[in-house]
């Protein structure tokens, strides 16, 4: 059946989708284990310490997830140069007037509900792209501080690359504090992110929610993109 009004656009390629869901999984894991490391539950037992290792396991999961998170993030940066135009790095950095104007338009249309000339952003809209750019900075900050703290208890070369972070920020305590505070950025981002996706799916019905599963969006042909 050929629909005259709607065209299908393949927006998110497989690597982007895998990146997205892997990232979602490890970020949730990192936030949960990270919160536990900061505020451990005191599950006491009368057993001797050598019989238990649950807190050590929580930390181990945090570290493994951190490595996956970091290299997944590196891969996404690579894909910003290798992927299709919707995955391109240019979607994330506000370096043109047009980009900034679109940010304002999205703000008016979707956040403040002020009428503007109708337009469609097929991939990320400019404001979303900018927000993801901020999250990439947060990813970077969290990776640097995390591996900085990790470097002291590791002999392998990779975490050692981050050993400069601790003296730079004035000791482990400060690094831990910033790392912990930044966790809340991730939590709040996730809440807003999920809501906004539902909002777009509800109001625009272009298949945003399922696009990250199948890769396709459905765009009206008669509206300017």
């Amino acid at each position: 059946m050929e629909d005259q009004k709607i065209k299908r656009v393949y927006v998110w390629e497989i690597p982007v989708r895998i990146y997205h869901w892997l990232n979602a999984l490890v970020v949730v894991t990192l936030a949960v284990t990270g919160y536990l490391i900061g505020n451990p539950l005191a599950i006491q037992s009368s057993a001797e310490a050598y019989l238990g290792y649950w807190f050590g396991t929580v930390r181990f999961i945090h570290f493994v997830a951190a490595f996956i998170f970091f290299f997944n993030f590196l891969f996404r940066i690579y894909w910003g140069f290798a992927g299709n135009k919707y995955a391109d790095w240019k979607n994330f950095i506000p370096y043109t007037k047009k980009y900034i104007r679109e940010c304002y338009d999205v703000l008016k249309l979707d956040i403040l509900h002020i009428k503007v000339k109708p337009f469609i952003s097929v991939g990320h809209n400019a404001l979303a792209g900018l927000t993801y750019f901020l999250t990439f900075l947060a990813f970077l900050f969290q990776s640097i501080t995390g591996f900085g703290m990790y470097s002291a208890m590791s002999d392998s070369f990779f975490p050692k690359l981050f050993a400069w972070v601790v003296p730079f920020l004035g000791g482990d305590f400060a690094v831990r504090q910033w790392h912990h505070l930044m966790m809340w950025f991730f939590i709040i981002f996730a809440v807003v992110h999920v809501y906004i996706v539902f909002y777009h799916d509800y109001v625009e019905r272009r298949g945003v929610l399922s696009s990250m599963a199948g890769g396709w969006k459905f765009i009206e042909k008669d509206k300017p993109t």
């Binding site: 900061g38 505020n39 956040i111 509900h113 504090q177 912990h180 505070l181 966790m183 809340w184 939590i187 709040i188 809440v191 807003v192 809501y195 909002y199 509800y202 109001v203």
Partner: peptide, 27 residues
């Protein structure tokens, strides 16, 4: 940091709720 995070989180959720209501009216 947790108190601050929780407070910002609560404000965010309240903002989302307000936005959802307004979206239903406006759209």
């Amino acid at each position: 940091a947790d108190d601050i995070g929780l407070a910002v989180g609560a404000v965010t959720v309240a903002g989302i709720a307000a936005h959802a209501v307004r979206a239903n009216i406006k759209k």
